[in-house]
Design a protein around this nucleic acid. Structure first.
Lengths: 328, 328
DNA sequence: TTGAAAGCGCTAACAC
DNA sequence: GTGTTAGCGCTTTCAA
């Protein structure tokens, strides 16, 4: 490792001057600055963020901890976060908690230990404990899923999206839509279920739903269970893309074709949804914007804004394709 | 922030004892250790990785820099890396260079600045400059794509996979398969193209190919260009999943159905490929294993193994589904 | 404009 | 088994 003291020796100046020159402070003679930069390049010196971080008590690093990096929604959120971070001179490190509360806690600890400048979290459950983060004074924004605690949040209007999807299914003439949603401790799962229920009740229909882990296998098993236990079910509203893949597998294995034998709408506009057979009707959420808005908000928090807690809800939209339409 | 000196005061011991107790060193009286842990919990103290890192000159953090976090292959690689890292007490931070050489260089700098214990890189191009990483003494493993430089690598056998895919297309009776591959500075793109060419030449057929950015739009445009300029083309070998989505869009807009009007094989077994209309034939690579093998190798490098450079090639497999079959 | 020196929080000699 | 203290590489007063 090349220390700035090495550079100082090479350039024949003090370490203070090297520090100032390398940080582009104006209070250093241009000629000296040039000499220092030359020496630094010659020696291949690199900033040591660890030492700097210890001294300045801050870093230029943001952490984004998400519960499911395979979900296209999160990759889009990550893009939004990264673009904004980049523009503001921050790097972002992604951590994947994989819907596992222990992993999540571990990564929260890592973020604190690494003294990140700010944290964006998509919590596993609304009960996720973030007290240590707040105690450490690290600005925190939650995305995609809310927290019980009172904290800045950028969310999608899951409930109304689910409601719109269910109404659409009903309007298309499917008589008994069921809902396949995530675990009963996941807020998004609950919100989407609530939207479904309210649309069903509004229509005088009887809700039928099933909780499952947000995974392909979870979706498959839940679909099987619903279809087996309630033969009257003729349509499915599915709460996310991973679940949907499992549902698709189960439908296929039963020879059930969406848009003909069963109506199908899923949450999340994954890139492949238009190419499924038949193209899938989806509830699309503005994931990139959720990420960028969250990052912007985080920036203002980092620079010390003391505004009251800010909760943003982003609208979703129904993208109608063939899977929810009758008579194909 | 709670420093260990605070904990020391609270517990009525020295900082050294706190440090030892919190790090679980055996040389501290159990009763004292207990008292220290109590005090630490009471005060809510958290380890400060920045200070520790400066002192010990090492961190428990691995970096994984990948060129395309949206590619399911990378998310699978990341899982493999994370599982192994976790088991060995390391955390991993993911960085997304987005096929952008500047971003890649930035994240390489960040990794060095943060003094990560090891680095796994999926480089944008084989010319990516990693001298600074090596100068910093950070163990490096490249995955998915090779580097010109002589460095540990864990790759998939892209070439033979592409060859098998092309042979399969030919054997199915498609007369003029074309290849849609990635940019001409991406090694995977070149390897897959090479495999395609060799199978074509072996069969006495004339290769027809098109380079494009590894993106949906790239795939769409390339497919359009191939189809417009060479009407005889009746099959497509596509070099990755993102490209494939674009190709699918273009085929659909022309009313061309895979497995009926055109044969189609794509690289990468993305989770949605079985559900496309018709199900897609793919070349599957063992992405999770690539990640875990790379991480294992990295572990041995970190612990100072001085073995010669190690290049692993993982086999790919052809998964035949309907899109490449004739006569649907 | 430049340099000397203190100190960020921690670990690891070294001394007891 | 426990405490004292130097020092990791850097930034930032303070003095010159």
């Amino acid at each position: 490792m090349v220390r700035i003291s090495d550079v100082a020796a090479e350039a024949g100046v003090s370490v203070a001057t090297v520090s100032r020159a390398l940080n582009g402070l104006p209070s250093v003679h241009p000629e000296l600055a040039e000499r220092v930069r030359d020496a630094a390049v010659r020696l291949g010196s690199r900033p040591n963020a660890v030492a700097r971080g210890l001294r300045t008590q801050k870093t230029e690093v943001l952490a984004l901890i998400s519960a499911d990096s395979e979900n296209p929604v999160f990759t889009a959120i990550a893009r939004g976060v990264e673009d904004v971070a980049q523009r503001n001179g921050y790097s972002v490190i992604l951590c994947n908690s994989d819907e596992d509360p222990e992993k999540e806690a571990r990564y929260l600890d890592v973020a604190i230990a690494e003294q990140v400048a700010g944290l964006i979290l998509s919590p596993h459950s609304s009960a996720t404990d973030v007290r240590s983060v707040r105690a450490a004074g690290i600005p925190l924004i939650v995305v995609d899923r809310p927290l019980d605690e009172d904290v800045d949040a950028v969310l999608a209007e899951s409930g109304s999206g689910a409601e719109a999807a269910t109404r659409h299914l009903l309007a298309e003439g499917w008589m008994h839509p069921a809902c396949i949603t995530g675990p009963d401790d996941a807020a998004t799962a609950l919100d989407r279920l609530a939207g479904y229920r309210s649309a069903m009740i509004e229509a005088g229909a009887t809700p039928r739903f099933e909780h499952a882990p947000f995974s392909r296998e979870g979706g498959r098993a839940a679909a099987a269970s619903v279809l087996d236990s309630t033969p009257s079910v003729d349509a499915l509203f599915v709460a996310n893309a991973a679940l949907a893949l499992g549902v698709l597998a189960e439908l296929r294995s039963r020879g059930l074709v969406p848009g003909r034998d069963v109506g199908l709408v899923t949450f999340d506009d994954a890139p492949w949804t238009p190419f499924i057979d038949p193209p899938m009707t989806v509830v699309s959420q503005p994931a990139y914007e959720i990420g960028s808005v969250a990052a912007e908000l985080l920036m203002t928090r980092i620079s010390g804004s003391d505004q009251p807690v800010h909760r943003t809800s982003m609208p979703t939209s129904l993208v109608v394709r063939a899977s929810s339409l009758r008579g194909r």
